[in-house]
Simulated scan of single mutants.
Amino acid sequence: MTTRRTLLGAGLVAPFLLPGLARAQSYPSQPIRLVCPYPPGATSDNVARTMARALSERLGQTVVVENRAGAGGAVGTRHVAEAKPDGYTLLNASGGNLLISPYLNEVGYHPLRDLAPVAMAGEAYSLVGVSAALPVQTLPELIAYAKQHQGELNYASSGIGSTGHLRGAMLAEQAGFEAVHIPFPGSAAAVNSLLAGDCQLMIDPVVAPSVQQGGKIRAVAVVGAGRWEDFPDVPNITELGLGQDWPSSGWYSLFAPAGVPEAVIGRLNAAYNDALAEPDTAAALRRLGLKPEPTAPDQLRRRLAQEYAASGATLQRLRIAA
């Protein structure tokens, strides 16, 4: 027979038996920090700010973007990996800081062990942008010019170990030319070097506005899944016989520290995917070169594992080191 004392005892014990459930039911009860591991103005920063606004509306708490740049995204990523696993410190991640940097430096975290996948903002397109000062209009013309001027072209990226670094090296390898990698502290600084004519080539979504405005940067190819709808006349690099076996690494996603309760991960995933379905948010991401893609945490975890292995093999083949 159940007594009043038994019921009271069960009520006192239950919170200690189910601490994760209790936290999840009240989550979020305070502002959330969304760490961007790159400087302001980078595509990662713009994606983070777009999703922070959308999440704030759906979670009923302020989501504040915090830029912690450095070491190819490793500084901010390590900060999140070492944070308390309560769901109040999150990471706006990309291929560079999860798939490349850990192979090049002692970053202090392992992407498959120390971070928990939450949701994906979407696949990211990039443009192969060239300085309009170059006498080329197409990717084949760029390749022919680069072969005639071996080692004379500079290609800019947002830093050593960035996606732009890897893609520039893969393009040079596949096309058979040599170029000099010039790393910058963020993609905004890198695209400025292209505008100034100090560098002649860059593969990054951040060049898109300058291409659309016309003048100093010309797009000769798209990198991503098919053609970019904002640049329908620019061929995908695979149409030109290149890029078929490149590791993707072209996405932006939400991660949390490992150990965050599954119920909190589920709450964040639902809010994130709901935001992607909202027309204004989806349109904002498309302007940044993303194709919104709702994803479950397990799907993202499997993809991360596959691309992490593929990126490591590519870096080793190209002998890319910090």
Score class of each variant (00 low, 15 high):
Ala219Val: 05
Gly186Met: 02
Ala179His: 05
Thr6Gln: 14
Arg227Ile: 03
Glu229Arg: 13
Leu59Arg: 01
Leu18Trp: 14
Ala310Trp: 12
Ala14Val: 12
Leu91Asp: 03
Tyr272Asp: 07
Gly96Val: 09
Phe255Met: 14
Val207Arg: 01
Gly164Asp: 03
Ala270Gly: 14
Arg23Pro: 01
Val63Met: 03
Asn105Ser: 13
Val260Lys: 00
Ala124Leu: 10
Leu285Met: 12
Ile160Met: 09
Ser44Asn: 12
Leu98Val: 12
Leu268Arg: 00
Gly73Ala: 07
Gly259Glu: 01
Gly60Trp: 07
Gln174Asp: 06
Leu134Arg: 01
Phe184Ala: 11
Ala132Phe: 08
Pro117Ile: 02
Arg319Asp: 15
Gly95Asn: 06
Ser158Tyr: 07
Ile160Phe: 13
Tyr109Lys: 08
Val35Ser: 00
Ala124Met: 15
Thr6Met: 13
Glu293Ser: 12
Leu12Ser: 07
Thr62Glu: 11
Gly70Pro: 04
Leu98Tyr: 09
Phe16Gln: 11
Ala284Pro: 06
Ser126Lys: 04
Gly164Thr: 05
Leu276Trp: 06
Met1Cys: 12
Ala263Cys: 09
Leu166Thr: 04
Pro279Gly: 10
Gly95Trp: 02
Val80Lys: 03
Arg4Ser: 10
Ser101Leu: 11
Leu142Cys: 05
His110Met: 15
Ala69Gly: 10
Arg53Glu: 15
Ser44Tyr: 04
Asp86Phe: 00
Leu195Ile: 15
Gln150Asn: 13
Pro19Lys: 05
Gly164Val: 04
Arg227Met: 03
Pro28Ala: 00
Thr138Leu: 08
Ala313Asn: 09
Arg317Pro: 09
Trp251Cys: 08
Ala219Gln: 01
Pro185Gln: 11
His181Pro: 09
Trp246Arg: 04
Leu285Pro: 05
Pro40Val: 06
Ala54Trp: 00
Gly214Met: 07
Ala284Tyr: 06
Gly224Tyr: 02
Ser162Thr: 10
Arg267Lys: 15
Gly41Thr: 02
Ala121Trp: 01
Gln61Phe: 03
Leu91Val: 09
Tyr145Lys: 06
Ala282Arg: 11
Leu300Gly: 03
Glu66Met: 04
Ile143Asp: 00
Pro31Asp: 02
Gln150Cys: 10
Val64Pro: 08
Asn273Asp: 13
Pro294Asn: 08
Ala270Arg: 13
Pro15Ile: 08
Leu18Lys: 13
Gln200Asn: 07
Ala133Arg: 14
Thr6Lys: 12
